[in-house]
Amino acid sequence: MQPSDDPLVTEVGVFVAFEGGEGSGKSTQSRLLASWVESRGHTALLTREPGGTEVGARLRSILLDPATGDLSPRTEALIYAADKAEHVDTMILPALADGSVVITDRYVDSTLAYQGAGRALHVGELEPLARWATADLRPHLTVVLDVDPRVGLARAGEPDRIEGEPIEFHDRVRRHFLDLADADPEHYVVLDADEAPEAIHERVRAALLPWLPQARGAQA
């Protein structure tokens, strides 16, 4: 199936999500990709979840601040869903309608991995909530940066509220990201986060290139 024939391609722009565990390099790779996209003459929107909007920034402080303490897993999932709804409605959809390449550091898969597999909420109940919050908008390409949680957490530094969870939590998160990618290889690419950042960036560029309408057939 060619990207132009894909049922997920319903917007003018292209939607890319970076997913993965803590310390996997998502922020670095997101920035590198945005710069490359703009160098090819496209408009890029670089954003993140939670926190891509003004409302989201407030929600992010609640979700990640260790001072928040324990939250009911359902409460936590609902706060993440609220962040996603605001993010999609006010930033992502307008940017896609304008023809931008939207690059987000985390999206729905993080909810399924962290609040679903990590918190042990039923993914079958959680996914409809996340899809409703995002109007069922799905990335054209999801890049999973895979790293052993023990390595990634060591890179992350002082832990926030989520990073401070037990290693078993992060192991479950990692497995779920890989399971999601295995289930939809047309829209996912899994990359080893232990590789050098530039080598990873080259692989990301190669994966995205077919989705850029004006760049198909060009060299990565």
Rank of each mutant, 00 (worst) to 15 (best):
A154S: 14
A154M: 11
A154P: 05
R155E: 09
A156T: 06
A156H: 01
A156S: 14
A156E: 00
A156Q: 02
G157L: 04
G157P: 08
G157E: 07
G157W: 08
G157M: 10
E158K: 12
E158R: 12
E158H: 10
E158Q: 12
P159F: 05
P159R: 03
P159W: 02
P159C: 02
P159N: 06
D160W: 03
D160R: 01
R161P: 11
R161L: 10
I162D: 02
I162W: 09
I162Y: 02
E163T: 09
G164R: 01
G164H: 01
G164A: 13
E165P: 04
E165S: 12
E165T: 01
E165I: 04
P166F: 12
P166G: 12
I167E: 11
I167W: 03
I167C: 07
I167Q: 10
E168Q: 13
E168S: 15
E168T: 15
E168V: 12
F169Q: 04
F169I: 02
H170A: 05
H170Q: 05
D171C: 08
D171N: 13
R172K: 11
R172S: 06
V173H: 04
V173L: 08
V173W: 05
V173A: 05
V173R: 07
V173Q: 01
R174I: 03
R174Y: 00
R175E: 14
R175V: 08
H176R: 15
H176N: 12
H176E: 12
F177V: 01
F177P: 00
F177Y: 15
F177N: 00
L178A: 12
L178G: 09
D179M: 14
D179C: 09
D179P: 06
D179L: 14
L180Q: 14
L180H: 08
A181P: 09
A181F: 07
A181T: 01
A181Y: 01
A181D: 04
D182T: 13
A183T: 04
A183K: 13
A183C: 07
D184Q: 12
D184H: 12
D184V: 07
D184M: 06
P185K: 14
P185I: 12
E186N: 14
E186T: 14
E186I: 09
E186D: 15
H187P: 10
Y188R: 02
Y188M: 05
Y188N: 08
Y188G: 01
Y188E: 03
Y188K: 06
V189N: 04
V189D: 00
V190R: 08
V190G: 05
V190K: 05
L191Q: 03
L191V: 06
L191Y: 06
L191R: 05
L191M: 05
D192W: 06
D192I: 00
D192G: 09
D192N: 10
D192C: 07
D192Y: 04
D192T: 06
D192R: 09
A193D: 08
A193L: 10
A193N: 04
D194G: 15
D194M: 15
D194K: 11
D194P: 00
D194H: 14
E195S: 10
E195A: 14
E195R: 15
E195F: 03
E195I: 06
A196S: 10
A196T: 09
A196N: 07
A196F: 01
A196D: 15
A196K: 11
